[in-house]
Design a protein around this nucleic acid. Structure first.
Lengths: 113, 113
DNA sequence: TAAGTTATTAACTAAATGGTTAAATGCAAA
DNA sequence: TTTGCATTTAACCATTTAGTTAATAACTTA
């Protein structure tokens, strides 16, 4: 009903698609044009263009014009918050497991920051 | 058109909603029933129940029956892969920034594992 | 057994998503 | 200035998502 507009939701949402993760992987090997990015996929260029727009809205890529090409570049800044969010809970989880291993009391909880 | 069924997509997709992240945060302070989880939200219990089903399908929570209550528990296992994926690219990005700071050649690329 | 509590499921709705093909845009080159 | 290439946008479609209310299920307790 409503689109989630907060940055963290946008980031996770952008990452929740294998095609988009693949595009980011390609871009991690260096900048590329839309055509180059589209090449490995059996999907119209228009579809890839839309995926790139999702990534751009999430600020995970930037695009610069160069004649009739758009050169895409990976932008990792939004990953920092995502990484922190996931890591906090990953560590909490691993902590829980550790507590079980050591026969300590379960579900001590986690602070709220 | 098709639902993304791979685990990583399911995980990111589940995290791409502030309500669901909030539910996980609550659960990180200890197990809770659906009613307890629903309480802070101005949303029907049915809606929360659906969010919990998304989290359950993504294996981010488990539920056990206890009389007429369902006790929910945070399950962090799927976060490991998500964490690794995000961290790999976060580190790559921070590396890129570092290279710029040090006036080294830009876009050296990133290996493919 | 009847009534109340907790939660899920069903049926419905509006909007978002992910794809298509076709048209439009912007630039380069003949 | 026409042609061609790279890309985006428009219009469309089917599916999914996120919510609603109402009905149902499962269990407790009076």
């Amino acid at each position: 009903m409503q689109m989630n507009t907060d940055q963290l939701s946008m980031t996770f949402s952008a990452l929740a698609d294998p095609t988009r993760r693949g595009l980011l992987q390609t871009l991690a090997s260096g900048q590329a044009t839309v055509g180059e990015l589209a090449h490995p996929y059996s999907m119209s260029m228009a579809a890839i263009s839309k995926h790139l727009k999702v990534l751009e809205n999430a600020k995970l890529i930037s695009r610069t014009k160069e004649a009739q090409w758009r050169r895409c570049k990976f932008e990792g800044a939004p990953l920092k918050d995502a990484s922190q969010w996931v890591q906090k809970y990953t560590k909490f989880w691993e902590g829980q497991l550790g507590m079980l291993d050591d026969y300590l009391i379960e579900s001590e909880g986690m602070n709220n920051d």
